[in-house]
Amino acid sequence: MNRMSSENNLDKPKEDEIVRIDFAFRKELAEKVEGNLASFCYQCGACVGDCPATFYSDDFNPREIMLKVLYGLEKELIGEDSVLWLCTNCYNCTERCPQDVKPVEVIISLKNMLADRGIVPKTVSRIIDTFEKTGRTVQLSSAVTKERAKLGLKPLEEIPMDEIHKLLAPAEEDSGK
């Protein structure tokens, strides 16, 4: 990147080198709950120093993810094997951010976009499915049912799934359209 160093040879950047802000992507993200937080990021990197996923992996960097959001680099964030799933959800970034960006929440909004496109790791979708079927994220085994009885604990009750399913259905009212 020493394009600027040879003053006489100031080549124009090639068309495919120009970063163009993808406003459609940013608009879609902004419609998520707390989806517009990255706009306040000034790239200080306070989130990076205290991020365990960054410490333990070269692939994950919350400041870079925020920058990609600002530019709208959808392809680098939304796709199979997205780096977003490396986030440990520890909230250190949120504690450290001087701008209240809550990088972990931006990452969760991006995961919502992944889910909208049907791209979710199996381990994650299995838990989501269990919740949508039973109202719990942990399946009750017969061994635990027996153990509960032995301890004199009440059996776990059925969750009114009709209520849960009614709440899950997306609606026109959500987008205000």
Partner: peptide, 26 residues
């Protein structure tokens, strides 16, 4: 007795934060 999963702040929240919020509100 009628409480459901909170729902969890990692998996279900990743699917759809507005649905997550609605069930938590319930």
């Amino acid at each position: 007795p009628e409480a459901s999963c909170c729902p969890d702040p990692i998996y279900f929240k990743s699917k759809d934060k507005l649905s997550w919020l609605s069930i938590a509100a319930r």
